[in-house]
């Protein structure tokens, strides 16, 4: 940590204690009876109506379901971007309902990596600057940041495009920059919201390969929301959601029998 960061930059005790002291490591994600309602005018629209699930460390999970089924809401809750109306969200052993804004931000920065359908890169920054962004709030010195980010860009095959802006890259390349940005912090959990929705089938399979490799190589838990059954087929665990409830939950393959392919 850096001297110039404020005292609040230190990880909250809850986050540290739970992740370091437990011998039996908790699941990556645990949801207990989650509901989420949006209020429009005087009417409440329930988006999630009581979801309980458990995602183990190192799993590659896909969430499927029709539009409006509550997938994105679920993802926002798991990603500590949104708070549930009721229920418990436990990320890596930490009950996030008890956390304040700063602690949630820290949790996102330390443990989570987000990947979006629309890439969500900052257009005015170059690839490498985009990848560096999550390292800046950590107070990491620029030199270290640069070399880490360049390494990560090279790992996704974009070492030669470090100084290009998103507008100068193809969709697949932009998504790889976004993946590098998500991976550069070495997160415990990667959350991807229809990451291949804007990509052609060839690029889609490249991006999925990337996820598979990260999952296999670093043991990173990966959670992908997708409409694409081909992608779901390559994951361990498929959760299907409809009308804010889990409709179906399937385990396609055991973690240990999983192979790259």
């Amino acid at each position: 940590m850096d001297k110039m960061t404020s005292p609040t930059a230190r990880p909250p005790a809850a986050v540290v204690a739970k992740t370091t002291s437990l011998s039996a490591r908790p699941p990556a994600v645990q949801l207990i009876n989650i509901t989420k309602a949006y209020r429009v005018g005087h009417t409440d629209y329930p988006a999630l109506r009581g979801i309980s699930l458990k995602i183990d460390r190192g799993e590659f999970v896909s969430i499927m379901g029709p539009s409006g089924s509550g997938k994105s809401t679920l993802l926002n809750v798991i990603g500590a971007l949104d708070r549930p109306t009721s229920g418990k969200v436990i990320i890596d052993g930490v009950d996030i309902r008890k956390l304040g804004e700063d602690s949630l931000a820290l949790l996102r920065n330390r443990k989570l990596g987000f990947i979006y359908q629309s890439f969500n890169l900052i257009q005015r920054l170059t690839s490498i600057e985009n990848v560096e962004m999550p390292l800046i709030p950590r107070g990491m010195p620029e030199k270290i940041r640069r070399s880490k980010s360049l390494k990560m860009l090279s790992a996704v095959g974009l070492g030669n495009k470090a100084n290009k802006r998103p507008a100068e890259l193809s969709g697949g390349e932009q998504q790889r920059v976004a993946i590098a940005r998500a991976l550069v912090t070495a997160p415990a959990l990667i959350i991807a919201d229809e990451p291949t929705g804007n990509l052609d089938s060839k690029t889609t399979s490249e991006v999925v390969d990337q996820f598979v490799q990260v999952n296999k190589q670093f043991g990173t838990t990966v959670l992908v929301v997708t409409h694409n059954p081909d992608i779901a087929e390559r994951t361990h665990h498929v959760i299907t959601i409809r009308d804010g409830l889990i409709e179906k939950e399937q385990y396609l393959q055991r973690l240990d029998s999983y192979s790259l392919g």
């Binding site: 404020s6 609040t8 930059a9 990603g79 971007l81 804004e101 700063d102 931000a105 820290l106 949790l107 996102r108 920065n109 330390r110 989570l112 987000f114 969500n120 890169l121 900052i122 962004m133 999550p134 709030p137 940005r181 912090t185």
Partner: peptide, 16 residues
């Protein structure tokens, strides 16, 4: 706004 959303998602605290 969107950029700020991205910053929040990747863990920038409100004060930052």
């Amino acid at each position: 706004t969107r950029e700020i959303g991205i910053l929040k998602a990747i863990g920038y605290r409100p004060k930052q």
